[in-house]
Design a protein around this nucleic acid. Structure first.
Lengths: 193, 193
DNA sequence: CGCGGGTTTGATGATGCTCAAGCCCGGTGG
DNA sequence: CCACCGGGCTTGAGCATCATCAAACCCGCG
């Protein structure tokens, strides 16, 4: 149940088994069915979520009723709206499951206690934030300068597993293009090779 | 010299005069001439900078040699590369001045000491981070879904002062379009009204 | 079998880029 | 004081990319 989380911690910091055991108590395992929400626009996001299995996404709905996917999260990833989580203000994002998933909930209060109990984790979350910063800024630059084809190629290079698992239309939404365009891009790419 | 910084702190947290006096000692005022760099790609960003007067920008140079502006900073704003600053790794950004400017340097070591000396500032920097998170995500969504005209209109609404001060080509770079396109967009907008 | 979703394909049009030329204006040197 | 730059902005023509609208297709499932 907590093996993935354990490995994920160890990738960035070193915890003794005793320390990790202390951490575990703060997490709440949950099952999330396909299409089920774990956060809805307008409500406060008072948890961050580690994905054990399955796949979730966060997205906004614009004034034309169209969805824009912000992030995917498969096993071994975190997902949340940090803005709402940290500020306590209502979120502008939705998060739901694209597959039946198993996740570990970490409530805000629990996280605070955990950080007190195992201060080393401060470093872990800081490193996580930094990684997030890099990904986010890369995404801005790409969105502003790269073509749809370039963005797709970068996507399949960066997230090869997601390409297999997620519906094409969802990837199109993430890339900021229509499903039709993505279909054509894939066609051209396959013809080239 | 430190009035702007003082007001900026007070917007988010409350500091006594004594606390603020302690803070001030950690900052190093500097003059930065137009076109002068305060950070160059490849070097580590070991400072964050508060702008007292003038205007700076951060940007990347892509493989075609083209600049992509990430952020502007006029008086009362911070500018830096947080990724490099926090991780100690080389930056991928450049930061230089678009006007002769007066800034306050805060070195990494100085910031750590300042946070020890005035713990209230932890909250200040957290709030700054959150504001940054919101702006950044808004920018991604816009870049992926809005037209050039919409992005420009949003820009002049959000940063009216910048429109006056910054060369049009720089704004085009920030918006991810060519100077020619921006020129045409402005023409159409003026014809409409 | 038929329905529903996601994907593909086609035709057409809008948006924004490229290349190229001209313009405006402030600065410099004769 | 004027001529000449040079940088930034504008304008034009043609083109590439991507969206839109619409129809067909594919396939898993009740």
């Amino acid at each position: 149940m907590f093996d993935l989380l354990h490995a994920n911690f160890q990738k960035r910091i070193y915890l003794t088994d005793e320390e990790f055991d202390r951490c575990v108590t703060f997490f709440v395992p949950k099952k999330v069915g396909k299409k089920q929400f774990i956060l809805q626009e307008g409500s406060v996001c008072n948890h961050i979520v580690f994905v054990n299995s399955g796949c979730l996404r966060s997205y906004t709905v614009d004034s034309n009723g169209e969805e824009h996917i912000v992030q995917f999260a498969i096993e071994d990833w975190w997902i949340s709206d940090l803005q709402s989580f940290l500020s306590g203000k209502p979120s502008i994002y939705n998060i739901d499951a694209l597959e039946d998933s198993e996740v570990l909930f970490l409530e805000k209060a629990a996280r605070d206690k955990m950080l007190e109990a195992v201060p080393k984790l401060e470093r872990y979350f800081r490193l996580l934030q930094e990684a997030n910063y890099v990904v986010t800024h890369h995404r801005i630059e790409e969105a502003l300068s790269a073509s749809a084809e370039e963005r797709y190629l970068d996507f399949i290079k960066t997230y090869p597993t997601l390409v297999q698992r997620v519906a094409q239309g969802q990837i199109a939404s993430y890339l900021g293009i229509t499903p039709q365009s993505l279909s054509r891009i894939r066609k051209e790419l396959s013809e080239k090779s």
